[in-house]
């Protein structure tokens, strides 16, 4: 298994998560926006890994 793709795809939620450091999490709308972004990035990460594994199999 070539884990470089897993590593590459994992940079997406990592980048979105760290972008949240610039967000004022005490403000609920901003917190919600960040949380939605984090979860969406996790979904993208999973879709990409699934697609990679599909191509591989």
């Amino acid at each position: 298994m070539d884990y470089q793709w897993f590593l590459l795809f994992s940079l997406i939620p990592l980048a979105v998560g760290f972008a949240g450091l610039r967000t004022d999490l005490r403000q609920r709308p901003r917190l919600l926006r960040q949380v939605k972004g984090n979860i969406a990035s996790l979904m993208v990460f999973l879709v990409l890994i699934d697609s990679y594994l599909f191509v591989l199999s």
């Binding site: 884990y3 590593l7 998560g17 949240g20 917190l31 984090n38």
Partner: peptide, 24 residues
Amino acid sequence: GERRAYHAVLLSISLGTTYFGALY
């Protein structure tokens, strides 16, 4: 609180990427 929890969020996501890095 949310701030400390967010640090845990960043720690968990960093551990995920670091682990894939170690596997690679």
